[in-house]
């Protein structure tokens, strides 16, 4: 990406991470990706009562090239899936995805031939937001959690380390089926 990628791990890098995280989360611009009912709640979140502008996010960029965040709001049908992927690919890094609603998180109530069972089959998702549809306040909760995640994103050497760690964990992680324990 830039100079920061080649900084060695250390105090300087962590300071740069904090600053970069703060800057990135402060003006996260969503791409217009409303599909179904959740899109209406997303628009309501942009409305005056819930006001997404207090997070600097009221500019829903039509062009994915100018957007950081893709809020997949609504059910993703088989026909729409390549479009989702194309829009995601057109977004420049750094980019994040919120799967808003149960339909984009997991297929929701529509477990059938027409709906992709979770948009994470197509794009990597950072925050899953359940709800049918989730209230605008729930969307804000998801956005704030995403802000925290962005604030803590590592850069450069730290990121490479982190990715290697996560990958190692993910390769040996058990599936949901194999997990034991109570409901949570």
């Amino acid at each position: 990406m830039g100079l920061e990628e080649s900084l060695p791990s250390g105090v300087l890098l962590t300071t740069v991470e904090k600053f970069a995280g703060y800057a990135r989360k402060g003006s996260l611009w969503p791409a217009t990706f409303g599909l179904a009912c959740c899109a209406i709640e997303m628009m309501a979140a942009g409305g005056p009562r819930f006001d997404i502008a207090r997070y600097g996010m009221e500019v829903f960029r039509a062009s994915p090239r100018q957007a950081d965040l893709m809020i997949v709001a609504g059910r993703v049908s088989q026909k729409m899936a390549p479009v989702v992927r194309q829009i995601y690919d057109q977004m420049p890094n750094p980019k994040w995805v919120i799967a808003m609603g149960v339909c984009s998180s997991s297929g929701g109530m529509f477990n059938n031939y027409a709906i992709v069972q979770g948009v994470d089959h197509i794009v990597p998702v950072d925050i899953y937001l359940p709800g049918c549809p989730p209230r605008p306040e729930m969307l804000f909760d998801a956005i704030l959690k995403l802000h925290d995640k962005i604030q803590d994103t590592k850069i450069g050497a730290n990121r490479r380390e982190e990715v290697a760690e996560l990958e190692a964990v993910a390769l040996t992680a058990p599936t949901t089926l194999e997990l034991k324990g109570l409901m949570r």
Partner: peptide, 13 residues
């Protein structure tokens, strides 16, 4: 034509 859904995974079932 089948409904086409996939089995939903829970812990242990």
């Amino acid at each position: 034509y089948p409904l086409g859904g996939i089995p939903v995974e829970f812990k242990g079932g």
